[in-house]
């Protein structure tokens, strides 16, 4: 069957609104009856990607494709891009500003957690142009 598509716009520097998209996806997956463990993995990973768009990339857009056997999340931004992906994937590595850290973000665990919770992760990034992060969780 055709996947169900959900689309969200993530706005820049909106810390209070951050997490709304992943919250909505979580709610949707619950009413569709996906296993709790799958829902948890998707919503934690998507939340991290959503936050990254807010704190590092001036916002962007997220597309979620829900199929009975897989949930795919694609996050696209036109932010600064990631110069060294291997470094960014390291636990604890963060370029977050002091202001952002003061708000409780920037522990450098986002990308490592996304990797940990998903079955597939692909990051396409061009410095100065933006980042597209695609992840999926198998059911």
């Amino acid at each position: 069957m055709e996947p169900m598509i959900l689309e969200y716009t993530v706005s820049a520097d909106d810390f209070s609104g951050a997490g709304e998209a992943s919250g909505d996806v979580k709610k949707t997956l619950k009413s569709l009856g996906f296993p709790p463990e799958v829902i948890r993995r998707v919503s934690v990973a998507m939340y991290e990607a959503e936050i990254n768009m807010v704190i590092h990339a001036r916002g962007g857009k997220i597309t979620v494709e829900i199929s009975p056997d897989e949930i795919r999340v694609c996050c696209e931004d036109v932010g600064p891009g990631i110069p060294d992906i291997d470094l960014a994937m390291q636990e604890g590595w963060s370029t977050a500003s002091d202001k952002v850290r003061g708000l409780g973000f920037g522990a450098g665990m986002g990308l490592p957690n996304i990797k940990k919770y998903t079955d597939y992760l692909d990051i396409k990034t061009v410095v100065g142009q933006g980042t597209t992060l695609t992840m999926s969780v198998a059911v």
């Binding site: 069957m1 169900m4 949707t28 619950k30 009413s31 569709l32 009856g33 996906f34 829900i66 009975p68 059911v139």
Partner: peptide
């Protein structure tokens, strides 16, 4: 499962 639209995921997706 009070929030679930259907016990079958496919049917639930169609309803959603």
């Amino acid at each position: 499962p009070a929030l679930q639209l259907d016990s079958d995921v496919k049917q639930a997706m169609i309803k959603m």
